[in-house]
Write a protein that binds this DNA or RNA. Sequence first.
DNA 1: TTGAAAGCGATACCAG
DNA 2: CTGGTATCGCTTTCAA
Lengths: 328, 328
Amino acid sequence: MAATIKDVARLAGVSASSVCRALAKPEQVRPETRERVERAASDLGYYPNRAARGLITGRTANIGVVLPDLANPFFPSVVKAIQTQARRFDYAVFLSDTDEDPALEVPLIRALAKQVDGFLLCSPRAGDEELRAFAGHTPIVVLNRRVTPFPSVTADSADGMRQAIGHLHALGHRRVAYVAGPRTSWSNRDRLRGLRSATSTYDMELIEAGNVAPTVDGGAAVADLVAASPVTAVIAYNDLVALGLLNRFRAREIAVPERISVVGFDDILLAGLVTPALTTVAIAKEQIGRTGVDLFLDLLKDDEGRKPVHKRTPTQLIVRASTGPAHL
Amino acid sequence: MAATIKDVARLAGVSASSVCRALAKPEQVRPETRERVERAASDLGYYPNRAARGLITGRTANIGVVLPDLANPFFPSVVKAIQTQARRFDYAVFLSDTDEDPALEVPLIRALAKQVDGFLLCSPRAGDEELRAFAGHTPIVVLNRRVTPFPSVTADSADGMRQAIGHLHALGHRRVAYVAGPRTSWSNRDRLRGLRSATSTYDMELIEAGNVAPTVDGGAAVADLVAASPVTAVIAYNDLVALGLLNRFRAREIAVPERISVVGFDDILLAGLVTPALTTVAIAKEQIGRTGVDLFLDLLKDDEGRKPVHKRTPTQLIVRASTGPAHL
DNA sequence: TTGAAAGCGATACCAG
DNA sequence: CTGGTATCGCTTTCAA
């Protein structure tokens, strides 16, 4: 149906090779020929078939993006940044949402592998070993996680936690709970690690609450448990979980932040709009997406060599409604 | 690098054709052969190159999704539904965010056209004529808009507006404002049309406020203007705009809903979590995405013929914090 | 500067 | 039931 290179060649009265050259390397072709080809191409509305091109060049100009859940507002932000940066280099984006199912990731990557030049895996849930199986075959950059030997971009959670705990400590809090996210989430482990280090630095007591789904419902599910514990503040795995806590606390008329302070992570749009506004650790989502694409393109250039690159993006505590514990 | 059909053929000691058959139509091949091929394939980790396959079958098993802004939480919901349904039919998704730039849409569609079997255009901003240029060439299903001759899925905004206005009228409101979204948005025009009809039915006065970007900032930008008008309720183009209004009203200590009731559209996650919770017209986002994919697949089946299909999904008013005007 | 021919990976068709 | 061959749309030698 659509015009092919042959159609253009016929109309311009030249060979397919010349069309190809005229369009790709204009300087290698006589100006007159180039002009004829260009006119023919635009008359026919010719656009090269990138899939066919990829077959021979080995470069598809597509990048695969795999993420656990587009419904978590954190991811659309990252994807948007990826899109923007990818487009700048004439790359198109293949998107796959795995629905938080670790088992879906590997088959998905395999199935798409030949249609893309490689992948940006956002917060992948699969095991290290499973992912490592792709090393050497498929260019992969990992976001929000570190898996040797892939390049990666992660947020500086430890610093974020340090800021959060410093803030809570300054307000007078001494006991804090952490509501953990998915066990399969590297970010969760990273945040917990950072939190443990921070609470120990400040000599604060840390109580850990169950692993929950990284959703509003997940937060709501452990809110009562948290409320029943002797803490005056709680840090949630992410903002959605924090909002679930907030919601349930409100329903039970547990005053936030007076009775208990809630701190989230990510700084999604929602965080600033709820009442009381959520104190949260902001992550440089755009930077993560953008840097991911950059690392990816670097990776394609020098097909191998060089040791893996890890970029760490800054975090920033956004203080909104938190206060000191009521008894102060 | 990765295994091709030839590698499998060699390892299994058969021809490429047989490998192809063994994998695609197992019943046309001797069980023994099939087994050998299957083992060879799995040993080599062989996955067919879908791009190459598409070249000859004319079917890529990819679907292009184009939308104006992934940062609007409405779209990720739709995309997620599309993904889920697409995966069910073994389709992969190409995603493109145009950043609300109408000029980007057409070139984007053109560039991707050969890599996909067609497109799902979510709330496209381009002109009718520009889109129509694809008719006959590129299978297209339009979501949240109607453009002859493409099949489309739209929400029943008129009914949603009727519900919203009925509700406000019952509460005693008689003057209502509408904060309009982008001029290029068909949904905006559709909602406005439905609203006009509803207000006239109920004999209510309608005041229209500027066209704003469909974002929180857009809403905040006209909040003062709305507050200065003689209305007791305001309906926003969408929830983000409504939240912008809410935010600004709070900042100015204009009581919601006592002094002014705010109604949104879409029912994004945020709507239920803010305080006061936002009354809004829920749209069947999942259904829109799912139905879009279904129409798309139908479209591919009978390459032409049949008159265009328009599906309309129901809307449902979700009443949360609205009340009657203070003077009652 | 240009064209012919080979080939990327897979499938379809036709003999055998 | 199987193998050979042509082909999809494009790029890349290689000669001319």
